[in-house]
Computed example of a mutant assay.
Amino acid sequence: MLKAVLFDLDGTLLDTATDFTRVLNGLLNEHQRPLQHYEAVRRRVSDGARAVVNLGFGIDPDHPDFAALLAAFLDRYETQIAVETTLFPGMDAQLRKLEAQGLKWGIVTNKPSRFTEPLLRALDLDGRCGSAICPDHVTHRKPDPEPIYLACKELGVNPKEAVYVGDHRRDIDAGRNAGMATIACAFGYISEGESVEDWLPDYIIHHADELETVLAQHRKKLEEAPCP
């Protein structure tokens, strides 16, 4: 039986790119650097804050100024974490349908708890999700399956009774490594040159509204599977 749905955070459950763009451009403006367009930042968000700083300043982590710029970016983001961030269109309705059906849902993200927890509180999601696993809760982050295993443990489900929804290759790899079905979000923060089909997910959705249909397909597949 399908008992739970796990989500990646940025680019899957939440549209955070506008806040990332605004924070980055504020920092770039102070350093008299050219501002970045939203679309350019959007393509880098799923790769983390380091990738966003790299985009804006054109320097790698081994550059002597990188650590200070990263710290400044993260400090700013922490204070402006949910100014324009929202659930993706249609996602709240999908979550409510899961809840109405008695399905548990949780979050497995590579976003540190320093940012994840206040973000969920700001959007009134902290009391709704049954688990929110961040990299500082585990030894190994995605694509290692450890954080998914921990989320399943907290939700009280077997990984085979859950699906993982994400917008990055590592999400699909993590779900596969945990032995669960995967759903790729083609509407998410897909890096330039990437194709979700190449990740070989079990399902692909192009809008949050499609999640209900895909989950129904997966339930039917589970029901028709031969007993071991």
Rank of each mutant, 00 (worst) to 15 (best):
V196S: 01
A216V: 08
V83D: 14
L95T: 01
I107A: 08
P64T: 14
Y38M: 01
P143I: 07
G188F: 07
K153C: 04
D167C: 04
T213Q: 10
F187I: 07
A174F: 00
L2H: 03
R170T: 15
S131Y: 13
Q80A: 12
L200Y: 00
P89L: 02
L24S: 09
D75H: 07
G156D: 11
K111R: 13
L87N: 02
H140N: 13
N158P: 01
V41P: 05
L150V: 10
F115I: 09
P135T: 08
A216T: 15
G156W: 07
D136W: 00
G193P: 05
L150W: 00
P89V: 03
T79D: 12
V53N: 15
D10Y: 07
T139Q: 08
A68W: 15
V45S: 09
G193T: 13
F66S: 15
D202Q: 08
T79M: 01
D126M: 15
R44D: 05
H37N: 07
R176S: 10
L211H: 01
K142R: 14
L95N: 05
E194I: 02
R76M: 01
E84R: 08
A216L: 04
S191C: 04
K160R: 09
I59P: 14
V52T: 14
D65H: 15
Q217K: 13
L28Y: 09
P135C: 11
I204P: 00
E212D: 10
T16Y: 06
S46K: 04
N158V: 10
A216Q: 14
T139E: 05
L98V: 04
G48M: 11
D173T: 13
Q94S: 07
V138G: 13
R219T: 13
R96N: 02
T139S: 08
P159V: 03
A49K: 15
A51G: 15
L120A: 12
E78T: 11
C185E: 02
T12E: 12
L222E: 11
M91I: 03
L125T: 13
F88L: 03
D92H: 06
T18I: 14
D15T: 04
A51T: 14
F7R: 11
A132C: 08
N25V: 04
V41R: 02
V23N: 08
F7M: 04
K220G: 06
R141C: 04
E224V: 06
P34S: 07
D209L: 01
